[in-house]
Amino acid sequence: MKKLKWRLLLLLSVMTLVLSGCGEPFISTLIPAGEVADEQFSLMMLSTAIMVIVVAVVTIIFIYVLMKFRRKGSDKIPVQVEGSHKLEIIWTVIPILLLIVLAVPVVASTFNLADTDPMKKALADDKNGGKDPLVVNVRASLYWWEFEYPGYGVITSQDLVLPTDEKVYFNLKASDVKHSFWIPPVGGKIDTNTDNENQFWLKIDSKRAKEAENIFYGKCAELCGPSHALMDFKVKAVSRDEFNSWINKMKNFKAETVAQTASAKQGEQVFKDKGCIGCHAVSPADNRPEQARTAPNLANFADRERVAGILEHNEENIKNWLKDPEKYKPGNTMTGTYGKLTEEELQALTDYLQSLSVEK
Score class of each variant (00 low, 15 high):
145 W>R: 01
68 K>H: 15
107 V>C: 06
115 D>P: 11
188 G>W: 08
158 Q>F: 08
146 E>I: 03
197 E>M: 02
171 N>R: 13
99 L>F: 06
91 W>E: 06
108 A>Q: 12
90 I>R: 10
104 V>L: 08
164 T>Q: 14
125 D>G: 15
162 L>W: 01
77 I>N: 08
78 P>W: 14
164 T>I: 03
116 T>A: 05
201 W>V: 01
193 N>D: 14
103 A>T: 13
165 D>L: 07
169 Y>D: 07
110 T>Q: 09
183 I>H: 12
163 P>F: 07
120 K>L: 15
208 R>S: 00
96 I>V: 09
94 I>M: 04
151 G>I: 12
196 N>W: 05
175 S>L: 09
120 K>F: 03
89 I>N: 11
161 V>F: 05
170 F>I: 06
171 N>D: 13
143 Y>L: 02
84 S>F: 05
121 K>S: 12
168 V>M: 12
135 V>W: 00
108 A>V: 12
200 F>P: 01
164 T>A: 15
192 T>V: 12
163 P>H: 07
84 S>A: 10
159 D>T: 14
153 G>C: 05
118 P>D: 12
79 V>H: 09
196 N>P: 00
113 L>T: 11
120 K>W: 04
201 W>C: 00
131 K>L: 08
98 L>D: 04
172 L>A: 14
138 V>C: 03
89 I>T: 08
165 D>W: 09
169 Y>E: 10
121 K>A: 15
66 L>H: 11
202 L>G: 00
211 E>K: 03
67 M>F: 14
123 L>F: 04
193 N>G: 02
193 N>A: 09
166 E>K: 12
181 F>C: 10
126 D>G: 05
102 L>N: 08
95 P>I: 00
179 H>T: 12
142 L>N: 09
208 R>K: 10
121 K>W: 05
135 V>D: 06
125 D>V: 10
182 W>R: 07
143 Y>H: 04
158 Q>Y: 13
110 T>W: 10
145 W>H: 00
96 I>S: 12
158 Q>C: 03
93 V>F: 09
129 G>D: 03
91 W>F: 13
159 D>L: 12
202 L>K: 07
169 Y>P: 10
213 E>L: 04
67 M>S: 10
141 S>K: 01
203 K>L: 06
122 A>Q: 05
212 A>S: 05
71 R>Y: 14
155 I>Y: 04
99 L>I: 08
97 L>D: 02
199 Q>L: 03
192 T>S: 13
83 G>N: 12
201 W>F: 05
121 K>F: 02
179 H>Q: 09
173 K>G: 15
145 W>L: 06
78 P>K: 11
131 K>E: 08
143 Y>E: 01
122 A>C: 11
152 Y>S: 05
172 L>T: 14
126 D>T: 10
164 T>R: 03
154 V>I: 15
177 V>A: 02
175 S>G: 15
113 L>V: 14
153 G>E: 05
138 V>I: 09
156 T>F: 07
73 G>E: 09
119 M>Y: 02
87 L>Q: 06
75 D>W: 08
73 G>H: 10
98 L>W: 02
71 R>P: 12
76 K>T: 10
112 N>P: 03
189 K>M: 05
85 H>D: 02
160 L>P: 06
193 N>P: 01
166 E>Y: 03
114 A>E: 05
146 E>M: 11
189 K>A: 09
191 D>A: 14
141 S>M: 06
96 I>P: 02
68 K>T: 13
84 S>V: 07
75 D>L: 13
135 V>G: 08
